[in-house]
C-alpha cells in the first residue's frame, strides 16, 4: 500500500466538495483495499462514503421501485430488499459474510467487474443509476469491462430497481473466487422480459436479445431450446473456455426461468 490521506465526510454535499478537490471514493473497500495492498493503485487521497447516513438504506418510491442508496451493504440489501426477492437473493450470495458486511452496491456498480453480480441485476431490471449529478439508465451505464458512464469524480448515490412480476438470478460460481463464472438475471415485466448476463463476456455485462424475444413470447425454459450463445466474445480463462461459457449462458438462463419467482 502506498501512503494516502483519508477524508471522512458525513454528508453527501461534503463528499462531493471533497471529490472536486481530487480523490477517489472509498466505499466498502472490498475491491479497492486489496488493489491498494497490491500497490496496483496510488490514489493519494481517499474519500470514505462510509459515514454518510444519507447514502445508506433501502426504500420503496412512489412508482414502487426498490431504491437502494449507494453505500448500502450487500448484507443490508439481502435483509431488506424483501419486496424484490431475486435482488435480495443475489445480494445474499455475494462473496462471504465479511464481504457482504462491508461491500456496497455503489462500489460494485462503479467498479463494474465483468464478473460482478449487481450489474446483472441492474441491467436485467432496467434500473436507474443515480449520481450526485444525474440519473443514468442501466442500458447506458455499463460500457464494457470495468467501464461505466460515470465521469471523473462522480458518485453513485442511489440505484432504483423497478420490481418485475417474477425474476431470478442463477449464478454458476468460478471455483476459486466464487464470483460468477457465468450468471444470468432474468426478469419478467408486464411489457417484456429482460435477460442480463455477467461473467461471460469480454465486454462485461450484456443483454441477450434473442433470449429476451423468445421469453417475451413464451416465458418457459423450453422457449430457449435451440438458442445458442455466440462464443465469439466470451471470456476464456483458466476456469472455462469460450464454448463452455457460451453453453453455461443457455443453461443458467433456463434455470433462471424455471426458478423465477
Amino acid at each position: 500500500m502506498y501512503a494516502f490521506d483519508l477524508e471522512r465526510p458525513t454528508t453527501l454535499d461534503a463528499a462531493v466538495k471533497a471529490m472536486a478537490a481530487g480523490g477517489q471514493p472509498l466505499s466498502g473497500g472490498q475491491t479497492l483495499i486489496p488493489t491498494l495492498k497490491a500497490r496496483l493503485a496510488d490514489p493519494g487521497k481517499l474519500i470514505s462514503l462510509h459515514s454518510i447516513p444519507e447514502l445508506k438504506g433501502v426504500s420503496t418510491d412512489a412508482e414502487g421501485r426498490i431504491c437502494i442508496k449507494g453505500a448500502t451493504t450487500h448484507g443490508t440489501v439481502a435483509a431488506e430488499a424483501v419486496a424484490y426477492p431475486a435482488l435480495a437473493h443475489l445480494a445474499a450470495r455475494i462473496g462471504d459474510p465479511a464481504v457482504r458486511t462491508r461491500g456496497t452496491i455503489g462500489g460494485s456498480l462503479a467498479n463494474n467487474d465483468p464478473s460482478a453480480c449487481y450489474p446483472a441485476a441492474a441491467l436485467g431490471s432496467g434500473a436507474t443509476i443515480c449520481t450526485d449529478r444525474r440519473e443514468i439508465a442501466a442500458d447506458d451505464y455499463f460500457q464494457g469491462m470495468f467501464a461505466t458512464a460515470l465521469e471523473d469524480g462522480e458518485i453513485v448515490t442511489e440505484v432504483k430497481f423497478p420490481v418485475p412480476q417474477v425474476a431470478a438470478y442463477e449464478k454458476f460460481i468460478q471455483p476459486a473466487s466464487r464470483f460468477p463464472l457465468v450468471a444470468v438475471f432474468v426478469a419478467k415485466f408486464a411489457d417484456g422480459v429482460r435477460v442480463a448476463i455477467t461473467g461471460a463476456s469480454e465486454t462485461g455485462v450484456f443483454r441477450w436479445a434473442e433470449a429476451e424475444a423468445a421469453l417475451s413470447a413464451r416465458f418457459e425454459a423450453s422457449a430457449l431450446d435451440g438458442l445458442a450463445m455466440d462464443p465469439d466474445h466470451m471470456i476464456a480463462d483458466l476456469h472455462g473456455d469460450k464454448a463452455y461459457r457460451a453453453h453455461l449462458c443457455g443453461v443458467m438462463a433456463k434455470r433462471a426461468v424455471m426458478h423465477a419467482a
Partner: peptide
Amino acid sequence: LTPSRVWA
C-alpha cells in the same frame, strides 16, 4: 476435475 473440464 473442474466443471469446465468435466463438461468438455
